[in-house]
Write a protein that binds this DNA or RNA. Structure first.
Length: 277
DNA sequence: TGACTTGTTCAAAT
DNA sequence: GATTTGAACAAGTC
């Protein structure tokens, strides 16, 4: 699923293939993914113009247009880019194709259609209006510590909350918490400052490494629970058995024997009652 | 056949 | 009012 590293690799993909070429025409298969724009407006903004630069914030990709503004992509669960000769490239679940004058096409596909396409004037305004938190690769240690100390919700849901921190999704959050030996249900504000500082550094380390290998998961197998997501696996660290639990409406995997559960006894959250039974 | 999965938003609960 | 929780969305896989 596209989390920060995947979106970063999509960003590089656009840089590598689709910049500085004049756009000849576009095709849109559905307007379902368009946010505050129309097919007509997209056409007007793109045709005859060029994509000139890219930037990313969290799981959002912004492609700058030469005239003005940005074309925004969110990849939902199944969003993907393809590039190739117009005559050869076809995709059953394509949403938007951008054809350049060199007869090549940049195709955005999304079979489950949870993605988003929009035209925006300013990246900063968009992030602020939507209320997204700082990018997970940019956030400083101090800010991260302060953010965690203010929430009593399960640390996993805080990590995944894009309004707190942009870029971390379900799979990377499990891998980060495993590395830190912290149970995903632990209350964020019950963790010691040193633990949160470690989490900050582990998060950056994993994300940076994933970005480096272009989010190729097969090169990240040394991070337990990132690719192998199953209950009943033998923990690589303590030989305990992994467990499944729904946390924040998402499937979570963890090793209950070496990932410790932390909580504030005076502020027991609802989720913790699960453990007391 | 139908349960399960994902990221985000929105509504409801606390 | 702020925070937290859970349902809903689509469609592919098993």
């Amino acid at each position: 699923m596209p989390e920060l590293p995947e979106v970063e690799s999509f960003r590089k993909f656009v840089d590598e293939h689709a910049l500085d070429q004049k756009i000849e025409c576009i095709h849109l298969s559905t307007s379902k993914l368009l946010w505050k724009t129309t097919g007509k407006a997209l056409k007007e903004a793109l045709v005859g113009n060029k994509l000139v630069a890219t930037q990313r914030h969290g799981k959002f990709l912004f492609v700058e247009l030469n005239q003005r503004g940005f074309l925004l992509f969110h990849f939902g669960m199944t969003g993907d880019f393809h590039y190739g000769k117009a005559s050869e490239l076809n995709h059953p679940s394509y949403i938007l194709s951008i054809q350049f004058t060199n007869n090549h096409v940049l195709l955005f596909s999304d079979s489950r259609m949870f993605g988003e396409i929009a035209l925006i004037e300013s990246v900063e305004d968009f992030i602020q209006t939507r209320g997204y938190g700082p990018d997970a690769l940019q956030i400083g240690e101090k800010e991260f510590v302060s953010l965690m100390s203010q929430r009593k919700a399960a640390v996993k849901t805080v990590l995944m909350n894009q309004k707190m921190l942009a870029g971390v999704g379900n799979e990377f959050s499990d891998a980060i918490l495993f590395q830190c030996r912290i149970h995903p249900l632990s209350q964020a504000n019950s963790l010691k400052k040193e633990q949160v500082e470690e989490m900050h550094s582990v998060m950056k380390k994993i994300l940076k490494e994933a970005v480096k290998v272009d989010a190729d998961r097969s090169k990240l197998n040394h991070y337990f629970l990132l690719n192998q997501r199953k209950a009943g696996l033998r923990c690589v660290r303590c030989n305990g058995k992994t467990e499944w639990m729904e946390i924040g409406g998402r499937s979570s995997y963890f090793c209950p024997s070496c990932q410790k559960l932390y909580s504030n006894p005076e502020k027991t959250g609802r989720s913790l009652s699960l453990f007391e039974q």
